[in-house]
Nucleic acid binder design. Structure first.
Length: 416
DNA sequence: TCTGGGGTCCTAGGACCC
DNA sequence: TCTGGGGTCCTAGGACCC
């Protein structure tokens, strides 16, 4: 049996831990650049705020009632780590599925429901994050059980004998993990609108009409495990860093500095995972919502001469891309990003007979990383990123809370 | 005025091989 | 009039996830 532990309204709950005045109030957390609502407290959901709804499309009378925060991923990432530490202490095998969800292998746990109740309370007490736990024989059923737990008392078990129970008949098919809006609509055309109907559909029909992924979901709903617990995280295939700018950027120099900043960050992520990249991609785009202005969406991928994790070599490639006709003069770009692909462990890279398989100065990079780890991200950097004050391309974050758990100057103060 | 960021997997079709 | 069969690899696009 597997358990899925999920933080309730996770980002909103993280904000509430350190800002008690937000408790009981309708609260939304916005995406980067203060664009969309990506987390909502129960009270905000009750007011009708939708997931990923742009804030400016929330009706003014609703918006007036909302407490609003900019996304504070530094805080959420740290809170997530605390929860994972509790989980790893409780069971040997944990798969961290996302920032607020983990799968647990409950093999060997005698009374699983009692265990889940205890664990749930411990997480709440030790971190302040309310959470729910779903238990089921497959990941898909554990996900579904988690959803049912949220409607009930925080823990729900979909044991084998219950897989045919009314819970699945009462669950819209679109709420099943792996069924998105597009599939849900097409399934409805086949008369399948509930989880129970999907479970009972013909595997052949689903395979032919929707492909292997959804057929696997059907099997999982029947209690046949098709998705293993991945407690050893597989290596990334791609690392991407991109941002929407607070204001459109026309200036080539500013665009170059923005892209260099993203690339520096991507290379840090690459090294932190012990990988090298063999290809670099760069893109930029104009505001797709402004159809009356000139649109341009340049996108280029280059193979690197040799795989590397050296920021300087990557920046040299970026410079080369930008020296061509990548950007157009006079165009206002709204978003840009870089991605590193064809990732590999350096010891697995094939070289040729006469030259090293990978290139780059590892000692220099690890020294740089050590400095930034110790003194804060960006303390030592590269001229290409720009250095004179706040960049013109910075994102909008007008309601950002403090880094309560990761910055010594921003710790919460308790008075009594 | 204002619309996120970062991932994965699968499939169909084209190019190419013998 | 007549034009095979079987395979791999790559890529773009679509679907999904949080």
């Amino acid at each position: 049996m597997l358990a899925l532990v999920d933080g309730n309204n996770f980002y909103a709950s993280c904000e509430r831990v350190f800002q008690p005045e937000l408790r009981g109030r309708p609260l939304v957390v916005l995406s980067n650049n203060d664009g969309c609502c990506i987390a909502r407290s129960d009270e905000a959901k009750a007011l009708g705020v939708k997931m990923a709804q742009p804030l400016h499309l929330v009706p003014p009378q609703v918006r007036r009632q909302l407490a609003i925060r900019s996304a504070n991923f530094t805080l959420y990432g740290d809170m997530s780590g605390r929860i994972v530490a509790i989980l790893r202490d409780a069971v040997p095998r944990v798969e961290v599925y996302s920032i607020d969800e983990s799968f647990l292998d409950l093999t060997g746990v005698p009374d699983q429901e009692a265990f889940a109740h205890t664990l749930r309370q411990r997480i709440h007490r030790w971190t302040g994050i309310p959470n729910c736990i779903g238990i089921g024989p497959t990941k898909t059923l554990a996900k579904l059980a988690n959803r049912l737990a949220k409607q009930g008392n925080g823990v729900f078990c979909l044991a084998d004998e219950h897989i045919s129970n009314p819970a699945l008949a009462g669950t819209p098919v679109g709420d099943v993990w792996g069924v998105g809006p597009h599939y849900a609509e097409r399934l409805a055309g086949h008369g399948i609108t509930t989880a129970a109907q999907l479970r009972d559909a013909s595997i052949q029909d689903i395979l032919a009409g929707f492909g292997a992924t959804l057929a696997r979901t059907v099997r999982e709903l029947r209690g046949q495990s098709c998705l293993a617990l991945e407690d050893i995280e597989p290596d990334r295939q791609q690392i991407r860093v991109s941002r929407t700018f607070g204001d459109p950027v026309e200036d080539r120099l500013a665009m170059g500095q923005a892209l260099a900043t993203f690339l520096v960050r991507a290379a840090e992520k690459l090294r932190s995972r012990g990988l090298v990249a063999a290809a670099l991609g760069v893109f930029a785009s104009t505001d797709r919502f402004k159809s009356n202005t000139p649109q341009h969406h340049p996108n280029r991928v280059v193979a690197l001469p040799r795989p590397t994790a050296d920021t300087r070599l990557l920046l040299a490639q970026l410079r080369q891309i930008l020296s061509g006709r990548f950007l157009r003069a006079g165009v206002h770009y709204r978003k840009a990003g870089v991605w590193l692909t064809d990732l590999a462990r350096p010891q697995h890279v094939h070289g040729d007979l006469y030259s090293p398989a990978t290139v780059g100065n590892e000692r220099l990079m690890s020294t740089l990383d050590a400095i930034n780890r110790r003194f804060g991200r960006g303390r030592a950097g590269f001229g290409a990123s720009g250095w004179k004050g706040a960049p013109v391309w910075k994102m909008r974050q007008e309601m950002l809370s403090r880094r309560y758990t990761t910055c010594i100057d921003e710790l919460p103060v308790v008075r009594c």
